[in-house]
């Protein structure tokens, strides 16, 4: 599935992924391919994206996550690049 992580300033991540693990407002949420359409508000926490070539991690604060047509979109005003997580 296609995953895009976008901040107001730029697209932080755009690519194919196997799984997304995000911190929603009420706890962690995992998205696997062919998830049903979903919109949720994100909390403060780590966003992990598993790709065939490894994993990416970001610190995200606020924003929201949308799943539609097997593509995941994460929009947040505060996204910090790879943490060591």
């Amino acid at each position: 599935m296609r995953v895009t992580v976008i901040s107001p300033e730029r697209a932080v991540f755009d690519g194919e992924a196997q799984a997304v693990l995000a911190t929603a407002f009420d706890g962690e949420i995992g998205i696997l391919p062919n998830h049903a359409p979903l919109m949720t508000v994100l909390g403060t926490g780590t966003l992990r994206i598993t790709t065939t070539s490894g994993a990416e991690a970001f610190r995200v604060q606020g924003g929201f996550l949308q799943v539609v047509n097997n593509s995941v979109r994460i929009l947040a005003e505060q996204i910090q690049g790879d943490t060591d997580a």
Partner: peptide
């Protein structure tokens, strides 16, 4: 699309 909205649409819109 028939979204699963979490939390409810009102709270979501309030954030967005």
């Amino acid at each position: 699309p028939d979204y699963i909205l979490s939390p409810d649409p009102v709270t979501l819109l309030e954030q967005v």
